[in-house]
């Protein structure tokens, strides 16, 4: 009886079945897999970012760090970019 109730409730909670969990987990893991399979991607992204930011801000390019981070249900692109100086008279 208890087991039955348990099943009834757990069913209700994660409506849509276990497929959605599988999909979410897969999408997350594939982001990391694909980045690892292609390290050039991060390098290219880094170079482009530096190029754009440099037009507005003086940054410490050697200390710039970009990674993918898994949050709860999403993947975030996390960039740590030390600022040296904001350029004057741009706006």
């Amino acid at each position: 009886m208890l087991r039955f109730l348990n099943r009834l409730f757990s069913r209700d909670r994660d409506k849509g079945g276990s497929k959605n969990v599988a999909m979410e987990r897969l999408k997350l893991v594939l982001v990391h897999d694909r980045v690892n399979a292609c390290p050039q991607l991060l390098e290219a992204l880094k170079e482009d970012l530096i190029r754009v930011i440099r037009e507005y801000i003086e940054i410490d390019e050697t200390a710039l760090d970009i990674t993918f981070d898994s949050m709860e249900n999403t993947v975030a692109l996390v960039a740590n970019i030390p600022v040296l100086k904001i350029k004057k008279g741009l706006v």
Partner: peptide, 12 residues
Amino acid sequence: GDMMDIEDMIDI
């Protein structure tokens, strides 16, 4: 809803 369907897999 307990198995990925065709669209899900093609999409991924």
